[in-house]
Amino acid sequence: MSDTLSTISTLIIEGKFADMISITNAALEEGLSADKILNDGLMPGMDHVGAEFKVGNLFVPDVLYSAKAMQAAMTIIRPLLAETGVETAGKVVLGTVKGDLHDIGKNLVGMMCEGAGFEVIDLGNDVDPEVFVEAVKEHKPTILGMSALLTTTLGAMERTIKILEGAGLRDKVKIMIGGAPVNQDFADQITADGYASNAATASELAKELSK
């Protein structure tokens, strides 16, 4: 492996986002392809971070720093990947459902997904079902993620799915849901494709669902 690629991995692991632009450009100048930078530099770094997080050696802020570093590199290489037709992890549209202003969990999922190489479109909080549907039409994401903290707003998830079905878009996108009152039973009940109990497993689930 080239030194530059291993440096990229290291910088990702250490969350040195400020250095990512210059190192990514340097790698491209060396003649390394965007594809190679992604798969042999960035991803091994993020995989390591994910594994260390799982066993408790790294923590949420560490992972977010690494995710920021990943994001910085992706701003440069994503257009190049698109040009060459290389498949990337895909897009995730995220939002906290109608009536709910709690968005820290959803933000965390967004950052984790960016760290996993997804392009994330965050619709914010208190999102109308119709806005979710419009976003699916416009961005054509692989994943639609919905979050709720309040039991009273859970119903909005089911309504959104119903509206997507009505618009003939349900089979175009995988739906994952999360939030404190949500569980697998509820996900099954409203026919979501997946449920994750925390942000780290959410980004893994997103990867799983987009396969």
């Binding site: 969350g15 923590f59 802020p61 977010l64 720093y65 820290i104 933000n107 950052m111």
Partner: peptide, 13 residues
């Protein structure tokens, strides 16, 4: 949100 802020990163430990 504070999760990704440097102040959090520097102090959470």
């Amino acid at each position: 949100q504070y999760l990704s802020h440097e102040h959090t990163y520097q102090n959470f430990r």
